[in-house]
């Protein structure tokens, strides 16, 4: 009906938050941060981060939120060099190559030794703030023998359905595409051809897929290893679990960077440094439901200890992803459309 309902979520902030934001600037400095909207939601990390940084810098932080990481980069491309953004927070590694190519970003120039990402992360422009692994989540009440590897998922019982997201329209969808690619390589097309029978449906975004899954439409769904943590902490249930895969799990790293304009504002670099400190990182685990990219002030909630720890971390380089994305999506399309 209204076709873009779920995807083109209007890029607007939480009403309560907005009230706080439109309050008159209390100090001389102002920092404009572009980010995605679940970051600034009232339960997201945004409000806590804003409060902590404003206390530290004696300045005002203004968040501008768009739908997701992809929309963030589009927004920046549309605005060009005249963008108001000082800091852009929420791109993932699949987007950083394209983001650098725009020439709109400036090197961060900060000390990133506090950052610790599985497999390491080095970049002159972007600083990671959290990470997560893609995972197949299963319903323990419906499925007693979850797949133990991507191979088992692909070759398993086609009656045990999985809901996945579309790589043409969503980040997790692209994540699964890259996961399969990094495990199967040239044979990815054949793998998709087999997996196809097990796929109940391909949704435009994460919300639809997870909604169908929790409605009981399928016992498997593509999500993150951290998803069970939400159910444990907020709903006190361990019904939903992530299936550990032998081949390893694909990594998603979320990063932030300062724009060329923002580099002129000293608050930008200060914010990026703050981002690597516990004051920022504390807000990540139970607000963004991702793993912190640096030390937090206290140990993580025990629920995080129960999560799957991937045997191996899989990730393709941003450049490789950017250059092959279209060809790989075409491969996916032709395998899935037969």
């Amino acid at each position: 009906m209204r076709p873009f309902n779920t995807l083109v979520k209007s890029a607007i902030l939480a009403g309560a938050l907005a009230l706080g934001l439109t309050a008159p600037a209390k100090a001389e400095g102002k920092l404009t941060v572009y980010t995605y909207e679940s970051f600034t939601a009232e339960w997201g990390p945004g409000p806590k981060v804003k409060e902590a940084f404003e206390k530290q810098c004696g300045c005002t932080v203004e968040f501008v939120a768009v739908t997701d990481g992809v929309a963030l980069l589009n927004r920046l491309k549309l605005e060009g060099p005249s963008t108001k953004a000082d800091v852009v927070l929420g791109l993932d590694t699949n987007l950083t190559y394209e983001a650098s190519e725009t020439g709109l970003f400036a090197p961060h120039g900060i000390d990133t030794s506090a950052i610790s990402i599985p497999g390491g992360y080095q970049d002159d422009t972007f600083v990671p703030f959290d990470y997560g692994y893609f995972a197949v989540i299963y319903d323990t009440e419906k499925l007693k023998n979850p797949p133990g590897s991507l191979k088992e998922l692909v070759e398993g019982d086609p009656k045990q359905k999985i809901v996945i997201e579309d790589p043409r329209t969503s980040t997790p969808g692209l994540g699964l595409l890259l996961w399969v690619k990094s495990v199967y390589g040239d044979k990815a097309g054949e793998a998709w051809d087999k997996l196809k029978d097990r796929v109940l449906t391909v949704t435009p975004g994460w919300s639809e897929a997870y909604g169908l899954f929790t409605k009981g439409e399928a016992p498997l769904v593509l999500s993150y290893t951290t998803s069970p943590a939400y159910h444990i902490v907020a709903e006190k249930t361990d019904r939903y679990k992530a299936a550990p895969f032998e081949e390893g799990h694909y990594l998603q790293v979320e990063v932030a960077g300062q724009t060329a304009n923002g580099a002129k504002n000293p608050l930008s670099a200060q914010f990026l440094t703050f981002m690597t400190s516990p004051a920022f990182q504390d807000a990540i685990p139970e607000n963004n439901w991702m793993f912190p990219a640096a030390k937090t002030s206290t140990a993580l909630n025990p629920a995080f200890e129960t999560l799957v720890k991937p045997a191996k971390t899989l990730i393709l380089s941003p450049e490789e992803v950017s250059k092959n994305r279209k060809a790989w999506i075409d491969e996916w399309l032709s395998a899935m459309s037969l």
Binding site: F4, N5, T6, S10, A11, L17, A18, A65
Partner: peptide, 25 residues
Amino acid sequence: LGTIALFGNNSIQTLPFLLLQRMGS
């Protein structure tokens, strides 16, 4: 949901927007 994906604005938040935001988290 409106058309304002690109018109990010801090002061408008409609009911369906709130709905999908909760659904998305």
